[in-house]
Amino acid sequence: MAIREIITFPHPVLRQKAETITEFDDALKTLVEDMADTMYKAPGVGLAANQIGIAKRVVVIDPEADEEKRDYLVLINPEITQGEGSMVGEEGCLSVLECYDKVKRFQKIHVTAQDIEGKPLEFDAEDRFARIIQHEVDHLLGKLFIDHLSPLKRTLYKKKLKKILRNKQ
């Protein structure tokens, strides 16, 4: 459908708590298709609506990032209702320029959500798939992966970002 602009930190929409979806209509389907197109073009493995400037509880995920297959998962109003274990792994974010670091997440999660038609979904996710879902659900809560870093690392990243933004002008 359409490639949307990916909003980057420190834009305030990334800190907004996303609104619950109540209407499962053609506008939602178009939004989801645009999000998938944008995610694959970036390229990324997940995208939350906040990242394209829309504070709604919608995420698209494709751990394989395979634009040919386009076998992406749509989660509307996702909630992580349980988490167990822990794992540390490298993360980056399409909305956080030039930053990659290790983040501790649950190793296994239980997810409830709705599909594009509004039907309930419920499943368990583990390992990398669980990491991606947790990262995207954080976006819907107004959190970024850098919020999981130490205060020193966040400060260093903010200094680096100022240089990046200055050089782009």
Rank of each mutant, 00 (worst) to 15 (best):
I6E: 02
I7E: 13
P12A: 11
L14P: 07
R15G: 10
Q16C: 10
K17D: 10
T20Y: 13
F24G: 03
D25W: 00
D25M: 02
L28E: 01
L31W: 03
E33S: 11
D34P: 04
M35R: 05
T38P: 00
T38V: 04
M39Y: 02
Y40W: 02
V45S: 09
Q51Y: 14
Q51C: 04
I52V: 08
R57E: 08
R57L: 09
V58D: 06
V59Q: 04
D66A: 08
R70G: 10
R70N: 09
L73A: 03
L73N: 05
V74I: 14
P78L: 15
E84L: 15
L94K: 09
S95N: 13
V96C: 15
V103D: 14
F106H: 09
I109P: 12
A113G: 10
D115P: 04
L121Q: 06
F123D: 00
D124G: 01
E126R: 10
D127H: 09
F129H: 06
A130F: 06
I132R: 07
V137A: 09
D138Q: 07
H139G: 14
K143D: 14
K143N: 11
D147G: 14
H148I: 09
L149C: 10
L149R: 05
L156S: 06
K160R: 14
K163D: 09
K163M: 00
L165W: 04
